[in-house]
Design a binder for these strands. Structure first.
Length: 294
DNA sequence: GGAATCATGTGAT
DNA sequence: ATCACATGATTCC
């Protein structure tokens, strides 16, 4: 049993059957992409990980819905440019016309979002009770945070990085009261990471805690459909500030509810994956994983 | 082509 | 005021 699996099991019930696969998958993606100069073969990677090639192939495919080769294909520059195709603009527009509190559609998961009032934002979380818990996910250990108004935060930790992950999130709302409560957060984790449960009559409630500008950026992210992507300047144009692409980048980077608010679908104009708060490897993992589910 | 450079809006100090 | 950015376009080799 790997260390990752041990941690998952000790922290919570394993809500995705594949929860423990991510550590393996992460290493494969890293070798395949970061180490692209040598472009290691599956055999080489399997050997370095101490597994048989067939076993590794099976684990990876079960996780991604894509073979390692197809996955690598899916996260290349070439493919990313296709994700940036032409159809995403109308979708982005119609969604924004729904107004600030309209329902958003993400993957096939319906999300209703409400933003905190400016006063509440300035209070930096004062008077707010945030329950949190750690759960296994397809992308490593997920830290889930929720208020009684809905899901407020979703973050990821690498093995051993749980505390740093918590600090990263908690300092965004320093005046809030944090209570560990796995029971309260488990339903969110179960729903969000299980595609079979995305289509439901009941929308997922999400509460966006941020500045006005940030909330507008995050809302536009919610309108990007599964398997598509937009550029930072696209978003800037859509929120009516075409020269603010760089500010958009900063706001995207502060997205507190990663994955649910699909900040991984924002790319540079060239199609390159320019950055990700929880690690570029995870961004690749999410984009590839989604390609396996289109 | 790729490195260097600049204009740029927002939020934190 | 100033600074750091998950940008993007332009201008040099």
């Amino acid at each position: 049993m790997t260390l990752a699996q041990h941690i998952d099991l000790s922290r919570s019930t394993d809500i995705t059957p594949d929860g423990g696969d991510y550590e393996t998958v992460r290493q494969v993606i890293e070798m395949l992409t970061l180490d692209y100069q040598s472009q290691p073969s599956l055999e080489t990677i399997a050997e370095r990980l101490g597994q048989s090639p067939t076993q590794l192939q099976k684990t990876f495919t079960r996780w991604a819905g894509l073979s390692p080769k197809a996955f690598l294909q899916a996260v290349t520059l070439d493919h990313a440019k296709r994700l940036l195709g032409r159809e995403e603009l109308p979708l982005l527009e119609t969604s924004l016309e729904l107004g600030l509190s309209g329902p958003g559609r993400l993957h096939d998961l319906f999300v209703t979002h409400e933003a905190m009032s400016p006063g509440e934002w300035k209070a930096r979380g004062a008077g707010l009770t945030i329950r949190y818990g750690y759960h296994a996910s397809p992308f490593g250990v997920a830290l889930v945070m929720a208020t009684d108004r809905g899901l407020a935060g979703l973050a990821f930790a690498d093995v051993g990085g749980e505390q740093a992950c918590f600090d990263d999130m908690a300092c965004r709302w320093p005046n809030a009261c944090f209570v560990e409560d796995q029971l309260a957060t488990a339903p969110y984790a179960a729903r969000v990471f299980d595609p079979a449960r995305w289509s439901s009559d009941e929308p997922l409630r999400v509460v966006l805690i941020g500045s006005d500008f940030q909330v507008r950026v995050w809302e536009s992210l919610l309108s990007i459909p599964l398997g598509k992507a937009v550029t930072y300047s696209d978003i800037a144009a859509k929120i009516g500030q075409p020269t603010a692409s760089r500010a958009v980048g900063a706001a995207v980077g502060r997205n507190p509810i990663s994955f649910v608010v699909p900040c991984h679908r924002a790319l540079g104009k060239s199609g390159a994956l320019t950055g990700y708060h929880w690690g570029l490897t995870r961004k690749r993992a999410m984009l590839g994983w989604e390609q396996g589910r289109v």
